[in-house]
């Protein structure tokens, strides 16, 4: 019952949206909109996701080498955050200096983007160093027979 209600409401909302589109858009725009919708799916499913999967696969393979698995999480997160922030920064970088007035897009986005990526990488490196240091510390304690008072 709830299921049918939800489904009916969903179809109703969708048809309402379709009606709004048919009312507001010219025939030319209505023909081109599906191309843009298709393009959005292509970019997501056949560019961004495969790219992430390929990078993830390479990284996972690399991580099977001795000791690499300990830093792989940090490296993956760093790469992912760099990629994501770059994706969002792309339109800002393209439109840099082309705002409709001086108060739109007034930042130096190239500098800001580089700073942001540098910060993400720096945090990633810091976390990796701390992890390695903790690892070396616990190893030296283990090899010296001191394993936490037990």
């Amino acid at each position: 019952m709830i299921r049918k209600g939800l489904g009916a409401l969903g179809i109703g909302f969708g048809l309402w949206g379709l009606r709004l589109l048919l009312q507001a858009l010219s025939l030319d725009a209505l023909i081109r909109l599906p191309l843009w919708l298709g393009g959005a799916v292509l970019v997501d499913d056949f560019l961004l996701i495969p790219l992430t999967l390929a990078a993830g696969w390479l990284l996972t393979n690399w991580s099977t080498r001795p000791d690499h698995h300990r830093t792989v999480t940090t490296i993956r997160t760093t790469l992912l955050y760099c990629g994501l922030t770059t994706l969002i920064a792309i339109p800002l970088l393209i439109r840099q200096g082309k705002g409709v007035n001086p108060t739109v897009l007034s930042r130096d986005y190239l500098r800001d983007w580089l700073l942001l990526e540098a910060t993400i990488v720096a945090v990633g490196v810091l976390v990796t160093v701390l992890q390695r240091r903790r690892l070396t510390f616990s190893r030296s304690r283990a090899s010296s027979g001191d394993i936490g008072g037990r």
Binding site: L6, G10, I11, F13, W16, G17, L18, L20, L21, A29
Partner: peptide, 17 residues
């Protein structure tokens, strides 16, 4: 107009999902 109409289509297909 497109942003508004797509919003209804999104919520509709989300409810259906």
């Amino acid at each position: 107009e497109t942003h508004y109409a797509l919003a209804w289509i999104i919520v509709g297909s989300l409810l259906l999902h």
